[in-house]
Structure formats: structure tokens, C-alpha cells
Amino acid sequence: MSDTFLYGIEVVMNGLMAGVLYALVALGFVLIYKASGIFNYAQGVMALFAALTLVGIMEGQVPFSHLINAIFGTNIHHFGWEVPAILAIFLTMGVMVLFAYLVQRFVFRHLVGQEPIILFMATIGLAYFLEGFGDLMWGSEIKKLDIGLVQGASVWFEDLTSGLGGDGFYGFYIDVLDVTAAVVAVILVVSLTLFSQYSKQGRAMRAVADDHQAALSVGISLNFIWILVWSIAGFVALVAGIMWGAKSGVQFSLSLIALKALPVLMLGGFTSIPGAIVGGLIIGVGEKLFEFMIGPMIGGATEAWFAYVLALVFLVFRPQGLFGDKIIERV
């Protein structure tokens, strides 16, 4: 096999892995949209907030220390202890549940039955609030996230495949962290699909998504379901924050990972959990292959726009996305 062909395969493999990371972000959007019809603009910021909270707890950082020091003239920053990663993840999850409760209690409870655009606008406000709140709580410096995840090339896989090509071929490159992310994503998708299809709460979630008022009339607690959904989305945001934060450190830009999820949602559909995964894989492979084959001819850096073009092409044929529910309006 020629080295170019092998490099093409390598690009596809890495595109699949990148697609899984995109899908992890898209999942959070899908969950909330599916259950409440809200396009949650704040999903990217939730990933940032969750990751900031995780690092802050692990390092024993005093929340709001800058504010406390400025008001009281103190000089406190750390409690002086460190928290193990697993415990910190559970505590962070607790914070995200509390966040879900507060969002429901102070924002969406007052917006039941409102137009989707109103709910969307509310999430924009929520995103800006959470951005500033996260900074105030944990500071805006870049933080190293180390929960023991291995990253870097899989030497074993490189050695195993290095014989496939010529002398210039090093073997296929696969990042171990991406493999971990893929495994986690598969577990998440299977669990969430089973939960939404077969559990009582899952069915209630779908009922709420169909019609708030009708769900209320059959005794489903809208408050509980929304808190549940936002908590699950918070957990997905935490997972995405961990995977992306391990690569770049935890910093404001984590909130921008939402940009990577939008074409995935357009392609996979806003209401399908498997759609998020398949959409992510198609976008990941498509943009990487395009950059590999066409990019050098047109100056490179094609990925940011190509993902959207690809999604738009799919939308021409399936406006609801590959797996989205077809919207039928009867008049």
C-alpha cells in the first residue's frame, strides 16, 4: 500500500476520533432540546463551568477567593488540601445538579408555555451569566486538568502498523485520550438511549418534550423533569469539559467548543441521541478528509467552514437532520 493511501486511512481514523469529541458536546444540546424544546445556548459554557469546578475542587481552591480578598483584605486562595479526582467528579456533579435546580427555579419555571425563541433567549442570558460567574468563582487563569487520563500517541498501535508502509511511514497515529473519549461516548449514548426509551423518567422526559401542558395534565412533574434533564446535560458537559480540558487546559475557550457541535446537530438532528454520534462522526471524517485532500490546494484551514457546508448539504435533502423528527404542521 502506498504511504499516501495509508495516511488517508490515518486521517479517517483521527476524523472518527475527533467526531466523537464533537458528539460529546452535541449530546448535551440534544438532551435538553429533546426534553424541553430549548436550544441551550449555554451548553458550551456549562462544559467550561463544570471543568472549572472540577479543577477548583481537586486543587482545594477557595471559591470566590478574589472577591473575598478584595472585600475583606484577606489573602486566602486555597484550603490547603487536595481532593482525589473521583471524589471531585462526584462533588462537581453535585454542583451541576444544584445549578440545574437553580436554573429551573429561577429561570425556566417562570417561562413554562412560552415561545421557543423566548426560552432560547433565556439560555443566551444564562450563558453570559455563567461565564462571568465561573470567572468570579474560580478565576480566569488557565488551569491544568489532570485526572489521570493518559494522552499522546499509542506507541503500541504505531509499532503494530509501522510495517504496512515504506520507510517513511511511522505507523498509524491514534491519541490514547481520543480512544478513551470514544469509549466514554459509547457508554454515555447507550445509557442515555436506554434511559430515555425504557425508564419511567425517560418516558416522562419525552412526554414533556412533546407538550408541556399535556404532560402536566397527566401528572408529570415538569419541575422534576427539567431539573433531571439539566442535571444530565450538566453531567454530559462535565464529561466534555474533562476530555477537551485535558488537551488545552481549563480556560474560557472551552466554552467555544459549542461551535464544533452546531454542524453536528444540524446534520444529526436536534432530537436524536444516536444522531449526535453519527453526525459527529460524519463531520469529523468529512472535515479531516477535505483538509487532507483539498486543503493544501486552497491554503488550508478549511475545517471551520467545511463542517458547516457539509451540514448544509445534508440539510438540503433532510431538513430535520439525518435522525431528527420530521415536523408535520396540520392546518
Binding site: 483521527n14 476524523g15 476520533m17 497515529y173 488537551k247 488545552s248 464544533k260 479531516k288 487532507f292
Partner: peptide
């Protein structure tokens, strides 16, 4: 945030 293509190149 995503530079896989660049580093594979």
C-alpha cells in the same frame, strides 16, 4: 482548539 489535521500533516 482542534488541531489534529495540522499535526498529522
Amino acid at each position: 482548539q482542534e488541531q489534529k489535521s495540522q499535526w498529522l500533516q
